[in-house]
């Protein structure tokens, strides 16, 4: 008798048990996640104002207004988050590989150091980048000492030329915002990658090279496909929060780097235009869901969900 069948029947307990276990947690999520999302959708279709109240009028025009006014911020958010995700992958993959396979007895120490920044406030660490990138900050002083100021100016001009900087300073530029996003979400990329890469059998590269694959080919045809689950997990954990984030763009950016989260925050909490803010929020959610679904489908790892 197949062992699986036998084991499965034993695990079958009275039928109400799983529902009893699920009920409190799922109820919480339904009341404080699903219901608010519906409430958000409803709010976005209402008209009125804070003082006289709102009524549901199916005012779809709000969406048109929201998109036509704020599409640059939405697009910018997706672009910054996309770039930051790409950078975290480029930086995170070698780091994860290094920790997993080349760090020897330092492995645990390094893992601790990757996770530890989580426990210092996100905001404090982001503010530290002001200190590092600022006009008279650490980087400038250091390069000044090394007589490399020309290199800094060259880099700033380069950033200005490609549209990621103001041309004269590092801080308060798209570069600084992307740098901060990359920094803040790097551990979210490294951890899933590490979990995946650590389990890779390195003898596979030997087998590949035995079968006439160059190191690059061995990576592309054997290691990379096997790391995909980690890559997909890491990119989702990075891209989704990065798109909605506005801490980095507020603290490290300028009026020209405004991201969609900032707009939503301002419309909700300062302008008090609830329908517009709700519409923007809802658009952001739908855009992300669509992007994530198509990405996951392309990567062929729906299991991850």
């Amino acid at each position: 008798m197949p062992d699986g069948v036998a084991a499965a029947t034993v695990r079958k307990r009275p039928n109400w048990v799983p529902y009893a276990l699920l009920a409190p947690g799922l109820l919480w999520l339904v009341v404080f996640f699903v219901l608010p999302t519906l409430s958000l959708a409803s709010q976005s279709l209402q008209t009125g104002d804070v003082y006289n109240g709102y009524s549901l009028t199916w005012h779809v025009q709000t969406y048109v207004d929201a998109l036509s006014t704020y599409w640059p911020q939405l697009l910018r958010s997706l672009m910054y988050a996309g770039l930051a995700t790409l950078l975290t992958l480029l930086l995170g993959y070698p780091l994860a590989w290094f920790v997993a396979h080349r760090s020897g007895r330092w492995k645990n120490v390094l893992l601790v150091l990757v996770i530890a920044p989580f426990y210092t406030s996100f905001l404090i660490r982001t503010l530290a980048w002001q200190t590092i990138l600022g006009d008279q900050g650490l980087l400038t002083s250091l390069l000044d000492r090394l007589h490399l100021t020309w290199a800094l100016h060259g880099f700033e001009s380069f950033l200005g030329a490609v549209g990621l900087g103001s041309g004269s300073q590092l801080l308060y530029s798209p570069f600084a915002v992307i740098c901060g996003l990359t920094y803040n979400f790097l551990p979210f990329m490294v951890l899933p990658l590490y979990a995946n890469i650590e389990r890779l059998d390195l003898r596979l590269t030997e087998a590949a090279s035995d079968l006439y694959a160059s190191p690059v080919q061995a990576f592309r045809r054997v290691i990379w496909p096997l790391s995909l689950p980690g890559v997909v997990g890491g990119t989702l954990l990075t891209f989704i929060p990065a798109t909605g984030d506005y801490i980095n763009s507020v603290l490290l950016g300028s009026a020209k780097t405004t991201m969609i989260g900032q707009v939503i925050d301002a419309q909700f909490l300062r302008v008090l235009d609830y329908p517009l803010a709700a519409a923007l929020s809802f658009i952001l959610m739908v855009v992300i869901i669509v992007l994530v679904m198509s990405y996951v489908r392309r990567a062929g790892t729906e299991e991850l969900l």
Binding site: L26, L29, F33, L35, L40, L237, P241, G244, D245, M285
Partner: peptide
């Protein structure tokens, strides 16, 4: 799906939708 959704929703959306509720 219900477990996954909050992880796939940006904080700003969750925060604002709770506020509307």
């Amino acid at each position: 799906l219900l477990i996954f959704m909050p992880m796939a929703t940006p904080e700003v959306v969750m925060g604002s939708s709770l506020l509307t509720l």
